[in-house]
Design a protein around this nucleic acid. Sequence first.
DNA 1: ATCCGCTATAGGAAAAATTCTTTTTTTATA
DNA 2: TATAAAAAAAGAATTTTTCCTATAGCGGAT
Lengths: 220, 220
Amino acid sequence: MKERIKVILVDDHAVVRAGFRMLLSTEETIEVIAEAERGEAACQLYLDKQPDVMVLDLSMPGIGGLESIRRICNRDSKAKILVFSVHDEWVYVERAMNAGAKGYITKHAHPDILIAAIQKIAEGGDYIEPSLISDSPALSSAYRETGETDYKSIIESLSAREFDVFLLLAKGLTSHKIADELCLGYKTVANYGTQIRNKLKVSSTAELAHIAIGLGVMKN
Amino acid sequence: MKERIKVILVDDHAVVRAGFRMLLSTEETIEVIAEAERGEAACQLYLDKQPDVMVLDLSMPGIGGLESIRRICNRDSKAKILVFSVHDEWVYVERAMNAGAKGYITKHAHPDILIAAIQKIAEGGDYIEPSLISDSPALSSAYRETGETDYKSIIESLSAREFDVFLLLAKGLTSHKIADELCLGYKTVANYGTQIRNKLKVSSTAELAHIAIGLGVMKN
DNA sequence: ATCCGCTATAGGAAAAATTCTTTTTTTATA
DNA sequence: TATAAAAAAAGAATTTTTCCTATAGCGGAT
């Protein structure tokens, strides 16, 4: 029999860690060798224990998941990290994969998926929960090639006028108000809106607001 | 030795349910007699099994946690429900308690707290996670002082369902996604959306996002 | 100088979302 | 019990968005 897959588990919720162990307890090919409840500790543990797979939550206090992935992959680009997050929005998948993760599953996932994902990644593959891929913006394969989907850079790819409109939309103005403000036809504004949302791959102005705030381009 | 405390566990994440069982497995005074992954099933199970305590997540597809609490407490005002949620904002605690919950703990809570809460509630008491109480009265008064529109109180004027929809809109979901999430007709969601925007006197979801963030109900 | 591509601006038609009104059922309360 | 409020949603009217197309202007390459 082969070596068991050594897993380190990183999640700030004790329940989730316990649940993970429990769900994996029936699977003899996998062994949880350590746990951490935050990113900083995870980075250290990774170096110390050299796990085959690190399963990691995105939202944690401190440096958080994304930054942890970045730091770990920086030292070891072959690091096998599986994100295990509550978020089922594609943006998160994208960000995580760009940061260097090899897989992404949500906490809604069925236990079998969890095991499958760990195994797939352990043997060097990628794994994204099937249900997530379906609602990816037609870029299910492109994420790997471009490797460049930071909002920062997309925002920079907006033209000057698009950016103007972006800001006002994020602020909460309607197309008509924006048209008045910028002295444009409301059709034009509406068209820019569509364009902007496509570029940022979102579907509501609320998301634009979050992005704007996240980028520090708007203070809330 | 006394009867063991019969607990029903409601959470849409399999990992969390597994973790809960695991963390309680050492405690012989407590016994998990059933599980459910959504509110509707929880209501039914409550009637069928008559648990001593029902531990319940707030965010679930379908009728969701708040509505479940309301329905159960309606039939049995002495129902002992302990909310077990990710949210650590006071608004949630308030809403849950108003709906009829007897206790509130977060998923960050230490296992001991979890056990303590169940026991306290089983014997007829209330239990709110200590760390949450600290920032309760401070916030509510802080918001009243701001000369700006008192969103806090308007938010409180939203019905339970409206609040659910408000959160998802503010998060950036489209009406269709929300309809799926909450198992409602998209028409219904659209209607709620209009209602909500009227009550809050705004005209875009971006503004809802700002309000939600401003109130600390959403972290961005 | 000419051509190419990109941005800025919009119009029209079709598709989608919102608003307004109304209805039904359930729950809550005076 | 009567009455008020909340939850859910359909239909019609309206508004917005989307998609496709088109024009004009500008800066750079040939």
